[in-house]
């Protein structure tokens, strides 16, 4: 009698205890890498923009024989200061140079106070762009041409930041180094 009672009590206790799962949960699905959203490289419009219509509607989009001597704010195009933007996944570096390449201002997301992963965000690029633009305006550089190098989240927002800081941007040039017979690259990442 007593043993039967004890058994029933034990059974109820075990059933209560079973409510809380103590073993490690079993993975029901495999992790699918495709679910991770594609990284933002700042190359918006890579596949969207209709090129032909853009080429038809607008004139003077691309440099011609005379464009070197065209005046912008009283300065010929080839003598405009250059704002170089080096974009990578982990940082964005701005350098404002004279047309002959002498560096006047240099600024990066790391110098701006962003640390570690935050350096490589589009917000960091934009704020850095704004600060370098305000500095450039103070030093008397109002009209610049922009040269972008590399792919990264800050690619588009960096240029936008320069404009928001008050610089007048004449042209955008891409200077990404692309080679069809490059030296052997580093080994692939293992995910």
């Amino acid at each position: 009698m007593i043993s039967a009672l004890r058994n029933s009590v034990r059974a109820s206790v075990t059933s209560v205890v079973r409510l809380f799962q103590t073993s490690t949960p079993q993975a029901t699905e495999k992790f699918v890498h495709k679910r991770i959203p594609a990284p933002d490289e700042g190359v918006q419009g890579e596949k969207i923009i209709d090129l032909d219509s853009a080429l038809k509607t607008k004139q003077n989009l691309f440099p011609t024989l005379e464009s070197d001597y065209q005046l912008y704010n009283g300065i010929p195009y080839k003598d405009l200061p250059i704002c170089n933007i080096r974009v990578s996944h982990n940082n964005t570096i701005f350098t404002l140079t004279e047309p002959d390449g002498k560096v006047r201002i240099i600024r990066s997301c790391g110098m701006e106070g962003f640390k570690n992963t935050k350096k490589g965000t589009n917000i960091a690029a934009q704020t850095t762009g704004i600060t370098i633009a305000t500095k450039a305006v103070v030093q008397g550089y109002n009209t610049v041409r922009v040269r972008v190098q590399g792919l990264g989240p800050g690619r588009l927002s960096a240029v936008k930041g320069l404009q928001m800081g008050g610089l007048n941007i004449v042209s955008i040039t891409d200077n990404t180094h692309v080679s069809w017979n490059p030296p052997r690259a580093r080994k692939a990442r293992r995910l």
């Binding site: 404009q163 941007i169 042209s171 955008i172």
Partner: peptide, 15 residues
């Protein structure tokens, strides 16, 4: 190289 038209940076970048 793309020239910026009417301060429209977005369009130039996209192009």
């Amino acid at each position: 190289t793309v020239f910026v038209q009417n301060n429209d940076i977005d369009n130039a970048c996209r192009l």
